[in-house]
Design a protein around this nucleic acid. Structure first.
Lengths: 202, 202
DNA sequence: CTTGTTTAATAAACACTGTTCAGTAATTTT
DNA sequence: AAAATTACTGAACAGTGTTTATTAAACAAG
């Protein structure tokens, strides 16, 4: 009986419809300013219908976060082929800044916003995020094996690099860098990133 | 006529009453989960009364942010007497981490949360924040004058230091460091901070 | 083709939220 | 004592996320 299979297809399609609308609105208007009713109106369904496909608003957000990590990992894949570990590291940093610049709302949801469920984020749900981190970590390790790194602990070195990038990006997105000239901010941020890579390398 | 002066005193006292209640609740429960009605109930007034002393919820938040920056600047004042610029810089970093660790909710409001008014934060409102930044910047400049810094531009060096601290702290607060062992996280963060200071110094 | 059953969708309600405003009660001024 | 100012509040408005009883449609079995 192909009926149940068609139904499953339709169910997935409907979920996708909700997700597409939600993504567009979250990215354009932000998570807080997008209501379930707005999403429902956009896809011409009742608000209650959305709850047949997502348990609550945070489950929609989680799905979009996964999309975002997929996009980031794809960005990363553009430079992981670089054979020189230091070049690769520099490339990853550039990708990260690029992603944050092009998709600030995705970045917000993925790295700045309050975690959906307050208490726990299970590591399983974060395997996309984990994958992104492992890409960084392995590159740092590779750099270290060539003896070109000034920081011993690879976890510490990874955290330092990630943190400086995230620090600059999130302060920028959340408008805490108003002391710096807006016009040159992107240049300054890129400069700092490359300086950082220079500093950690011997 | 002492009456108008008494009234002014009472008005200020009332504002303080609202602020004290709001602070406690924002810090304990978070900004989003604290409603105007909750605050009103706590001080045993009608919700509408609060709007006689604060234009809206974000104005309360702004007042609390100022408090927070006052506290941070006070922390800073404990180490600005250190004569060696590099020691001073290290001290500032420790103060920053300390503050974030002791008052994560204040930190959240000050550095992570969406800016109250979406469009602009006037630089005037931020002079407490500006002061905190200037403390860092001047210390970096002093380090540079002794020729002990590896980064030319003092603005870039300041941004790098601030960003790495904010990056680690905000990722931690927003639970994005679940790959790292929870028990050792504070130690790792402090380690990274001192490593960073070591790296930027010649 | 007509039952009975499962499924999908929704209208309406619940308990909230920030905010405004007309109206009341108390205080101060004349 | 009357008038004017001030402080305060109840009730409402327009919105939020979410749940539930009910309806309409699609399917399965006789």
């Amino acid at each position: 009986m192909g009926i149940s299979e068609r139904k499953e297809r339709e169910k997935l399609q409907m979920r996708q419809l909700v997700l597409a609308a939600a993504t567009e609105m979250f990215i354009q208007e932000g998570y807080d300013r997008t209501s379930i009713r707005n999403i429902a109106e956009k896809i011409e369904y009742s608000p209650a219908t959305i709850y047949l496909y997502f348990k609550d608003k945070t489950e929609i957000l989680e799905a979009i976060m996964e999309q975002g990590f997929g996009m980031l990992n794809q960005e990363f894949s553009k430079v992981i082929h670089l054979s020189d570990p230091m070049e690769r590291l520099k490339g990853l940093a550039d990708c990260y800044l690029h992603f944050a610049h092009d998709f600030p709302e995705y970045y917000d949801l993925m790295f700045i916003m309050k975690t959906p469920v307050e208490n726990v984020v299970e590591e399983d749900d974060w395997d996309c995020g984990h994958q992104a981190y492992m890409t960084l970590f392995q590159t740092v390790q590779a750099c270290q094996e060539t003896g070109k790194l000034k920081v011993q602990d690879p976890h510490a070195a990874s955290l330092m690099l990630w943190s400086i990038l995230h620090g600059m990006v999130s302060l920028h997105i959340r408008k805490r860098l108003i002391f710096f000239p807006e016009a040159q901010l992107d240049a300054i941020i890129h400069h700092c990133a490359s300086e950082m890579v220079r500093l950690v390398s011997a």
